[in-house]
């Protein structure tokens, strides 16, 4: 009697309060997850609306005006756009071959696995060093070193682009390595079975198969380079001119913001907010494309 009574009690449905608690917990988790999407939308709308006064003031001509003169309220960011694109381009030019070399070297069996893991970790550490520390090192070590044997005198495009290439190298190396190691081993075996050497297999089979991930990694690195602020601000010289020489000071959108925002007032703030919106849109497009390429890689 007792036994069956307790058993039937145990088999009763859960009390309502417990079920509601359960539902509330799941909903709370969902709301916090939606909050991430909310933050992203919030940033987008806030940055866009902040720039509205300047957009109606300067129009699209802001993009191809090259004078930045707070005294006459003339604002244009052509030199900064030029500097942003050129510095990122030089950085990619250096770090793509080196990053791919690192990715291949660390995905083959050249080194014993333990040593390989340590080197992978060291390359990752390059990404963890704060950018202001790169800037500090660039000012006191890299620029004096470069000016010994080049026409470089003080901050300029070249040291900024060099440091930028060091900073984005780990992104390219790590994501390319992931892409290369996730290529099915059958492809390599088939290539070697047909008589390919190691490098023939790498260059003709493995790299093409991993290309979407590698390009995604390069795009992510480009996104980082375009938006990188501190190291570039400290090394590029912040001159609002377009000069084709890499030994001349230049400017980027991010360094323009870092340099002027805190002391700006009135129309200059509006112009800087407009510049921020342009940088945001550029990096957003690059990042979304990169994410699409990298996630396509993960589905294979």
């Amino acid at each position: 009697m007792d036994q069956s009574y307790t058993n039937s009690r145990r088999l009763q449905p859960r009390p309502a309060i417990e079920r509601n608690l359960d539902k509330a917990f799941v909903w709370a988790a969902k709301i916090f997850a939606l909050a991430i999407a909310g933050v992203f939308v919030w940033i987008t709308t806030q940055v866009t609306f902040q720039a509205m006064p300047a957009i109606s003031e300067f129009g699209l001509g802001f993009l191809w005006t090259s004078s930045w003169n707070p005294v006459n309220s003339q604002f244009g960011i052509l030199p900064a756009v030029y500097g942003t694109i050129v510095s990122s381009f030089i950085a990619l030019l250096i770090s793509i071959p080196i990053g791919l070399g690192v990715a291949i070297f660390l995905s083959e069996d050249y080194l014993p696995p333990k040593v390989q893991r340590i080197i992978v970790f060291l390359v990752e550490l390059l990404a963890a060093v704060p950018s202001v520390v790169y800037g500090l090192w660039g000012i006191f070590v890299l620029i004096p070193f470069l000016s010994d044997f080049t026409p470089l005198r003080g901050p300029a495009m070249l040291p900024a682009a060099l440091i930028l290439s060091v900073m984005i190298l780990p992104t390219i190396a790590a994501i390319s390595r992931d892409a290369i190691t996730s290529v099915p081993i059958d492809l390599r075996q088939a290539a070697v079975g047909l008589g390919a050497t190691r490098w023939e297999a790498i260059l003709k089979i493995i790299i093409p198969a991993a290309s979407s991930g590698i390009i995604g990694g390069i795009m992510l690195a480009l996104g980082r380079a375009l938006g990188e602020t501190m190291a570039v601000t400290m090394l590029i010289g912040n001159a609002n001119t377009i000069n084709p020489s890499v030994f001349a000071p230049s400017n980027t959108i991010a360094s323009l913001l870092a340099n002027q925002f805190a002391e700006a007032s009135g129309l200059q703030v509006a112009a800087l907010l407009y510049a921020a919106l342009i940088l945001f849109i550029i990096t957003l497009i690059v990042n979304i494309l990169a994410q699409l390429l990298v996630t396509r890689l993960q589905r294979i």
């Binding site: 938006g227 870092a258 990096t283």
Partner: peptide
């Protein structure tokens, strides 16, 4: 995508 937004833009925000 949020982790790719430049930190200076987060500052502006």
């Amino acid at each position: 995508v949020l982790s790719g937004v430049p930190s200076i833009i987060i500052g502006v925000f």
